[in-house]
Amino acid sequence: MSDGTNQRFTETPLVRRKQREERFAQWLFFAMSAAMIVPLLLIVGYLVQRAWPSLSLGFIIDVPVRGMKEGGIWPAFIGTIYLVVLSLAVSAPIGILAAVYLNEYARDNWFNRLINLAVINLAGVPSIVHALFGLGAFVYAARFGYSILSASLTLAIMTLPVIIASTREALASVPRSFREACWNVGATRWQTIKAVVLPNSISGILTGVILQVSRAAGETAPIMFTGAVFFKAVQKGDLFPYNFNEQCMALSMHLYTLSTQVPGVKESIPFATAVVLLGLVLAVNAAAITLRVWLRNRKKW
């Protein structure tokens, strides 16, 4: 043990070079994250700034007046909520239960793999294709007409594949050993699913479902073809203004109309509509994240 030992573990030029690379890599990754976040913040900031003169609670619960040039967006706001709730009420149970079957019961054979492939590919089909399918299937063939029902079912068809895919992923992330533990005390598959699989994957399933809320709320093409309408006279703040067999207004459609079809709209109104749409989606996602954090805190592994 001579004096030389004190030089142990000190940096060599190579280590210093590697550390420079490390810092560069870290900086690069940070820069890319910033490049992702900054434009988003700028967009939101710009929207809010332009929308500011119109933003108020009154704007949400007021009806449009003077040929939609002034006033609020209540008919579109409540219409979007109708469409989203109804479409998810259809697609979430079907999607989740189908995913449970595919993941827990179905044998892993070529047919199952084919279905899986089809589901993944369906998730990538453009929304305009779903729109035309909805038009043909629900509006004409099933004779639902241009209505909330047709539009919601079309949105449901559109969100279904993604819900199935994300639910399967959540189910697959539950360790196999948990299932084996259950089977080995003689539990049936359904008991296993109820007692172990679903409680441990519920947060992932919910995340997948709720992400589809924003998609259903934001898509314009499917509802434009099947049930959304340019204008509908509605009472201010009326919570149940529509029947399911009627057409309704929707935020995304309303935004499109205001910014391209109606001349002389007060400048801040389209921006305010966009902010409300964003805010609605954000509120739903925030609720989902809160729920997920709460569920995950109960998770013990």
Binding site: M1, T5, N6, R8, F9, T10, E11, T12, V15, K18, Q19
Partner: peptide
């Protein structure tokens, strides 16, 4: 101290330490 060197000294490089 590993081999006579305090591994919490500021001049210790984690890379070299874990190599050894």
């Amino acid at each position: 101290k590993l081999l006579g060197k305090n591994i919490y000294d500021p001049d210790v490089s984690l890379v070299e330490l874990r190599k050894t």
